[in-house]
Design a protein around this nucleic acid. Structure first.
Length: 482
RNA sequence: GGCCCGUUGGUCAAGCGGUUAAGACGGCGGCCUCUCACGCCGCAAACAGGAGUUCGAUUCUCCUACGGGUCACCA
């Protein structure tokens, strides 16, 4: 069996959508699973839609996520160049070959005629389709016009009648009547090929064995196959992937303001988690495992697990998975990753950020939420005394005040400000008072944080804040409640 | 509108003629506990509808409905 060669062929027209990334991922996985080759090709035949810097985003994203290509514009390879605009001459030669073979023809219709044709067809509710005006021009007519310098395009000559059938790896057998296909343009009047054509030529020339792409190409695939057949080339295996949706009706897209890969990373998602999540969006490994490293994905990948219907991007699940990744990080790795966010929420130098990170790690699903989780350490927020009333803890303003008043001297007497000392001192107090733990510890935690929820309990917070600051906050609490 | 494709809980999904129709996220309840979270235990929640084929359909066929894609000198 031939070595499998797949390719990711984006147009440099903007950001990396998650749908795009997923297509790249599947192409990568398919190649690597079979010890094959993964190729990057830039499809920039549309002069007008180029976006500055878009190619860099593609390189950066692939590198960051570990989807490293074996051949591509930046690293070269045996089938270069890997940028379509640099392959211009190649396409014309093949287009002409097709004309010779009778599978394509020169068309001299100008834009005006085409627009008018479309209007008429729309008005009469006819399917809009090229009317074949130039389809049967004689050789003499063609040569005359060429000599006269009339602008031309080259169109594909779809056979009349018949049905084109092909096998898709995810959708199975797909058959389309040829009459529903249009004589599309292969070579534009600017000499550049359309996607339809460049794609086929490049995929063949680059030895692509498996074409992984979105379902938007499913219905034009018969036309590509007609091209392959006309050339006498081997048709690749098609793997059409359904789209990633924002909701049941709309696709996930930058245009709708949906998050791109970069946005997600900026929002505090780990790139591994994002990649893992999108791998599972529209593909099932079959087993129970949900957390996969890239190498594990390579091992587990199989085309048969790709689903036929669109899937909705679920932020909830991504969050969960991200939390799962965070919890699996070593304390050091998490600290390093959390550091920038920690710095945003805590400016004081007296707080031990490693200790905060340790408290945070099991309670953090999204890095970007860290600042607001820890900002109370910097400065006690203003809070309502209603916080002291907690039914389950059996606390209210009165017994909270009593507790804080009892706590104050106890804390003042703790010289050795450690977890053990604090714990011993406070639990001795609890025993002496003959109350439930919460009656003492809840007011303490509230006084220290001014918040309903915190990463850590009263003792842990006291330890972080230090003796002086803790005493001050307890006194403040007493004043508030008095 | 023509052509192509799809439809299992709210979401991701397993299932490939016979199952009590997995599992995960989310939701709800409980346990643990110095709050919250983690962890653990449990609950609710689905085969779009209708005809066939078959001893038997979530699985096969057809129709309907709904949804998506595509009909450019864009990719």
């Amino acid at each position: 069996m031939r070595t499998i060669r797949t390719r990711f062929a984006p147009s440099p027209t903007g950001y990396m959508h998650v749908g795009n990334l997923r297509t790249a991922l599947y192409a990568y996985l398919l190649a690597k699973k079979n010890n094959g080759t993964f190729i990057l090709r830039i499809e920039d035949t549309d002069q007008e839609r180029q976006v500055e810097g878009a190619v860099d985003i593609i390189y950066r994203t692939l590198a960051e996520t570990g989807l490293v290509h074996d051949e591509g514009p930046d690293i070269g390879g045996p089938c270069g160049p890997y940028i379509q605009s640099q392959r211009k001459d190649i396409y014309k030669k093949y287009a002409l070959e097709l004309v010779e073979k009778g599978a394509a023809y020169y068309c001299f219709c100008d834009k005006e005629r085409l627009d008018e044709l479309r209007l008429v067809q729309e008005a009469s509710k006819m399917p809009s389709k090229y009317d074949g005006h130039c389809r049967n021009l004689s050789r003499e007519e063609v040569e005359q016009k060429l000599r006269d310098g009339v602008p031309y395009v080259i169109r594909q000559k779809i056979p009349e009648g018949g049905v084109t059938v092909f096998e898709d790896a995810v959708f199975g057998t797909v058959s389309t009547p040829n009459d529903s296909l249009d004589d599309n343009i292969l070579l534009k009047s600017d000499g550049l090929p359309t996607y339809n054509f460049a794609n086929v030529v490049d995929d063949h020339l680059m030895g692509i064995t498996h074409v992984v792409r979105g379902t938007e190409y499913l219905s034009s695939t018969p036309k590509y196959n007609l091209l392959y057949e006309a050339f006498g080339w081997e048709i690749p295996v098609y793997v059409h992937c359904p789209p990633v949706m924002k909701d049941a009706h709309t696709k996930l897209s930058k245009r709708n303001g949906d998050a791109s890969y970069e946005d997600l990373v900026a929002a505090g998602y780990l790139k591994e988690a994002v990649l893992n999540y999108i791998a599972l969006l529209g593909w099932s490994p079959g087993g129970e495992q949900e957390v996969f490293t890239l190498p594990e994905l390579v091992q587990a990948f199989d085309i048969s697990g790709i689903s036929k219907s669109p899937s909705i991007f679920d932020t909830n699940k991504l969050r969960w998975l991200n939390g799962e990744y965070i919890r699996r990080l070593s304390p050091e790795a998490f600290y390093d990753m959390a550091r920038p966010w920690l710095d945003q929420g805590i400016h004081s130098d007296s707080i031990d950020k490693r200790a905060v990170a340790a408290l945070l790690q099991p309670r953090c699903e999204l890095l970007s939420e860290i600042p607001e989780q820890v900002d109370f350490l910097d400065k006690l927020p203003e809070y309502d005394t209603a916080l002291y009333c907690h039914k389950k803890m059996k606390t209210d303003c009165e017994n909270s005040l009593a507790s804080l008043q009892a706590i104050l001297p106890v804390l003042e007497s703790v010289d050795d400000w450690t977890q053990e000392s604090l714990h011993d001192a406070l639990f001795t107090l609890i025993e002496k008072m003959g109350v439930k733990n919460g009656v003492v510890l809840w007011p303490l935690r509230v006084a220290l944080s001014g918040k309903a929820f915190t990463p850590g309990g009263g003792i842990e917070l006291a330890l972080l804040l230090g003796k002086e600051q803790s005493l001050e906050r307890v006194r403040h609490g007493i004043a508030l409640l008095s």
